[in-house]
């Protein structure tokens, strides 16, 4: 194992257990996320990838365990986390255009009662520009393609200007152009010193896109630099015997 200097952790998860009814979805997880890196949460369906993301964000109740983000619980400093939910989890018929959705990224900074003004609108348009969506700013979100919807979410994340980004399957069901836009955005965020955690399901592209990986299957299988944790043994433990078909030769 290579010796690396001690780096600050963006996220520290201790003894985390999450269960629906009596069925454990995450079982006694200890895991750290390195600050300033692109980290993928990887595992088969039902491994608890999304649940881990949501448990870190306090969106699902924990049975046990603790989570700290930059050394503090999330509730003490909410401005530091940006969130990109699964595309299918929101109602795209909602009467809003792309610009409205990006503006939502800045609601946290505005706080209660204050409304977004011209400054916010300009910033939101810049963020849309960054993901190549400025011309579609006034388009109702239901009339965007899946890839365009995903890019609106990315623009919203950029507008949040957080230290840590949590993204749930941003690559799910998008076209090649959007996949490239997502990757570029992730790298841009890393270059700006941000930490990004992404739920990812494609083993083949993971080593190219990410620095670190958390291999998960209800229990933690391995975590750390992706070329160290992506061993045949770990992948076998995560996916079972099917793993060798999942990795491109």
């Amino acid at each position: 194992m290579s010796v690396r200097p001690a780096l600050a952790h963006a996220i520290e998860v201790r003894d985390l257990t999450v269960a629906y009814e009596e069925k454990p979805v995450l079982w006694d997880l200890d895991v750290d996320v390195r600050s300033g890196a692109l980290t993928a949460i990887i595992g088969p369906n039902g491994a608890g990838k999304s649940t881990l993301l949501k448990a870190i964000l306090g969106l699902v109740p924990r049975v046990a365990g603790s989570v700290s983000i930059f050394g503090k619980p999330l509730s003490e400093d909410r401005g530091k986390v940006g969130y990109v939910p699964q595309r299918s989890s929101v109602d795209w018929d909602f009467p809003a255009d792309a610009l409205d959705v990006v503006l939502m990224g800045m609601y946290g900074r505005l706080g209660w009662l204050r409304r977004p003004g011209r400054t916010e609108r300009e910033k939101a348009l810049e963020c849309l520009e960054e993901v190549g969506m400025r011309e579609l700013a006034q388009r109702q979100i239901g009339r965007l393609s899946g890839g365009q919807q995903q890019r609106v979410f990315l623009a919203r994340a950029l507008a949040q200007d957080a230290r840590l980004y949590m993204m749930d399957e941003p690559f799910a069901g998008v076209d090649a152009v959007t996949e490239q836009a997502v990757v570029e955005t992730l790298r841009k965020l890393r270059d700006r010193g941000k930490t990004v955690v992404v739920v990812h399901h494609d083993l083949g592209s993971a080593p190219e896109y990410f620095d670190e990986a958390i291999l998960l299957n209800v229990r933690l299988v391995a975590s750390g630099p992706i070329d160290e944790v992506f061993t045949p043994e770990n992948l076998h433990k995560t996916y079972g015997a099917g793993a060798r078909f999942l990795v491109a030769p």
């Binding site: 969130y83 939910p85 929101v90 909602f94 809003a96 409205d100 939502m104 609601y107 977004p116």
Partner: peptide, 21 residues
């Protein structure tokens, strides 16, 4: 008063929760 907050929590309750709304 709460137009922005209602809009966000209706469209994306997860983000609303994270932002402390």
């Amino acid at each position: 008063l709460f137009f922005k907050e209602l809009k966000l929590s209706t469209f994306d309750p997860g983000l609303a929760e994270i932002l402390g709304f």
